[in-house]
Write a protein that binds this DNA or RNA. Structure first.
Length: 399
DNA sequence: TGCGATT
C-alpha cells in the first residue's frame, strides 16, 4: 500500500502553513551531475550514514541576488506530481510541476543519483526573495511520512562546481565525519561529507564522500591526499572522483535493486563440512593443536592486540578468489550458508561492465564455522574454476 | 597472481 502524502488541506487548516499568495514554478531538474548535494541528513532520512547536524538551510548560495532557485531534498519516494503541486501550491500558485521517473524502474528520481538516496525537487520561483525565504521557512523541516524534507537555496549551476565529488576509501574505522572534513577542508570549501557505516553495527565502513564547492578544489585534494596516511592512521587512503550513478544503465540499476540474498539450501556442501574437525582447522589456520572456542580467540585478539586475519570486529571476513565474471551474490550464500551464520556476502564487480572482477568476500559470525567453510571450499571446483578461499588479509596497501 | 566498499 502506497502511503499517500499527508492531507495538505488539513495541514493548511491547522495553521502551520503560510497561505499568502505566491506565484511559483515547480520543476523537476534532470541533471547528469548534481551540483547541490544535501548538506544535512538525519537518522530518519537517507541510508546508513554518519550525519551532519542539519544546519541552516541557507547554506549553499553565495550572494542574495544569486538565490533564485530553491532545492528540495529528502522527498518521500512515493510522492506524486499532484501531491507536489498541492504542497507548493499551499505557498502560492504553481505554474508547472513535473517529476521525472526512471523509464524502467518507474522510481521517482530527478537524477538517477537519487535512486540511491532521496528524490529531490527544484523549485524555481518567478520573483521575490522574500517569498523564497518564506518558502524555506515554511517548508524546510516539514515531516512527510518518514521523511523530513529540506528546502534550501540552490547554488547556481556552473561548470566550475560540477564533478567536485570525491570518493574516499581506506579511512580508519575510527575516523569521524568531522575529522574527515578537517582532513579535506585544507583544500577548499566542503559542501557535503559522508561516511558510510555498517547498517547493523553502526561501525564505519572506511568509505566516504566529500563534495567540494569547486572541481579544482577536489582535484587538489586528490593530489594532496590520495595515497597519503591521515594523521595517526596506519594505512594510506584512496581519494578519487566519485562514480556518478546516473551513468549506469537501467539494467545495471535493476540488477542492484533486486539483488537479495537467496535462501540457503542444504546441499552436498553441508555434508562436506562435517568431514572436518575443528582441531584440524585450527591447526591449519594457526598451527595450534588444541581445541579452543571462538570466545577464546576473541580473548586473545583483544588481550594481545593481535590482528587475526579476517577478523573485522563484526565477524570473520573471508576472501574468495577465482569467481566467474557472471558470479553473483547468491552463489556465495549458497556455498557458505551451509557452514553456519553468514552475515554478508559481496561480489566485487567492475563498475562499468558490472561483471565480477574474479573475487568476493563473505563475512561469517563464528570463527569455527568460517574456518570450516574455508577448509571445505578452498580448492572447490565451481563450474570450470577452482576456488581459492582464505581469511581476508590486507594486501592493498602493502609494499 | 588476484584482498572491496560508490551516498
Amino acid at each position: 500500500m502506497a502511503v499517500r502524502l499527508c492531507d495538505v488541506a488539513s495541514l493548511l487548516r491547522s495553521g502551520s502553513w503560510a497561505a499568502e499568495p505566491w506565484t511559483g514554478q515547480v520543476i523537476a531538474a534532470m541533471e547528469t551531475q548534481l551540483s547541490n548535494g544535501p548538506s544535512c541528513n538525519n537518522t530518519t532520512n537517507g541510508p546508513a550514514t554518519i550525519s551532519n547536524n542539519c544546519s541552516s538551510p541557507v547554506e549553499s548560495g553565495s550572494i542574495e541576488d544569486s538565490k533564485t532557485n530553491l532545492i528540495v531534498n529528502y522527498l518521500p519516494q512515493n510522492m506524486t506530481q499532484e501531491e507536489l503541486k498541492s504542497l507548493f501550491g499551499s505557498i502560492g500558485e504553481i505554474e508547472s510541476c513535473k517529476l521525472v521517473r526512471d523509464k524502467i524502474t518507474d522510481i521517482l528520481c530527478l537524477d538517477v543519483f537519487d535512486l540511491w538516496t532521496e528524490p529531490r525537487l527544484r523549485v524555481r520561483q518567478l520573483r521575490g526573495s522574500e517569498r523564497r525565504r518564506k518558502a524555506i521557512n515554511t517548508l524546510n523541516g516539514l515531516r512527510l511520512q518518514t521523511k523530513t524534507i529540506k528546502v534550501s537555496y540552490a547554488r547556481p549551476s556552473s561548470a566550475s562546481i560540477r564533478d567536485a565529488n570525491l570518493y574516499v576509501s581506506g579511512l580508519p574505522k575510527t575516523m569521524t565525519q568531522k575529522e574527515l572534513e578537517q582532513l579535506f577542508s585544507q583544500y577548499g570549501r566542503i559542501i557535503t561529507s559522508r561516511i558510510l557505516v555498517d547498517q547493523v553495527t553502526g561501525v564505519s565502513r572506511g568509505v566516504g564522500f566529500i563534495r567540494f564547492d569547486r572541481r579544482i578544489e577536489a582535484e587538489e585534494a586528490i593530489k594532496g591526499l590520495n595515497g597519503q596516511k591521515p594523521p595517526g592512521a596506519t594505512e594510506p587512503i584512496t581519494v578519487k572522483f566519485a562514480n556518478n550513478p546516473s551513468q549506469k544503465t537501467s539494467q545495471a540499476l535493476l540488477s542492484q535493486l533486486y539483488q537479495s540474498p537467496n535462501r540457503r539450501y542444504p546441499g552436498p556442501l553441508a555434508q562436506q563440512a562435517q568431514r572436518f574437525r575443528l582441531d584440524n582447522l585450527l591447526n591449519m589456520a594457526y598451527g595450534v593443536k588444541s581445541r579452543f572456542s571462538p570466545m577464546a580467540i576473541d580473548g586473545v585478539t583483544s588481550l594481545a592486540g593481535i590482528n587475526i586475519p579476517g577478523h573485522a570486529g563484526t565477524g570473520w571476513c573471508i576472501f574468495v578468489y577465482n569467481l566467474a565474471p557472471d558470479a553473483d551474490e547468491s552463489i556465495l550464500w549458497q556455498m557458505f550458508g551451509p557452514f553456519g551464520a553468514v552475515t554478508n556476502v559481496k561480489v566485487i564487480r567492475d563498475f562499468n561492465t558490472n561483471k565480477c572482477k574474479g573475487f568476493g568476500f563473505v563475512t561469517m559470525t563464528n570463527y569455527d564455522e568460517a574456518a570450516m567453510a574455508i577448509a571445505s571450499l578452498n580448492g572447490y571446483r565451481l563450474g570450470d574454476r577452482v576456488l581459492q578461499v582464505s581469511f581476508k588479509t590486507n594486501k592493498t596497501h602493502k609494499a
